[in-house]
Amino acid sequence: MVKNYIPQFLFILICLPLVFYAQEVKIFTLKDFDLKDSVKTCLVSTSYGKEEYDFNRKGVLTKSVTRYNEADYDVVYYKYQNDELIEKRSESYRNNIFDPSTSIAHFYKLDTLNNVKITEKIVSYEEEFLDQYVYHYDEKGDMVKIIRTNNDGIDETLIEYKKYKGEYTVTYLINNEPLKSIRTSQLKKKNGTVQKVVLTKEYLKGEANKAFEEVFNEKGLLVAQQEFEYNIAEKTFVPTKRTIYTYDDNDMLVGEASKNGDEVMKKEYVYQYDREGEGNWIKQIVRPENTYKTRKITYYVPEVMEKE
Rank of each mutant, 00 (worst) to 15 (best):
G279H: 01
F212A: 07
N260G: 04
A257W: 10
N151E: 11
R287L: 15
V170R: 01
G279Q: 02
N4S: 14
V76M: 05
G59H: 00
N56S: 05
N96A: 11
N209P: 11
E229M: 12
Y133A: 06
K162P: 02
Q284P: 00
I146R: 01
V286D: 01
G279R: 02
F28S: 07
T62I: 15
A208T: 08
G59C: 00
E256G: 04
K58E: 09
I282Q: 01
T193S: 11
F9M: 12
E128W: 08
L43V: 11
K140H: 07
E227Q: 11
K266H: 08
E70Q: 13
K109W: 03
S181K: 14
Y164F: 10
V198M: 06
Q132H: 06
D248A: 14
E51Q: 14
K58P: 01
E51P: 00
F107Q: 05
K201D: 06
K189D: 06
V2W: 03
E306I: 15
N56W: 02
E214T: 13
K283P: 01
N260R: 05
V116M: 03
L110H: 02
P302N: 08
T41C: 03
D32S: 07
T102M: 02
K283M: 11
K109S: 09
K63W: 02
V19C: 07
N260Q: 08
N96V: 03
G261R: 11
I154E: 06
E70P: 01
T112R: 07
N280P: 02
G141A: 07
A22I: 09
K162M: 11
E289F: 09
A224H: 06
Y292C: 02
R94S: 13
D251H: 12
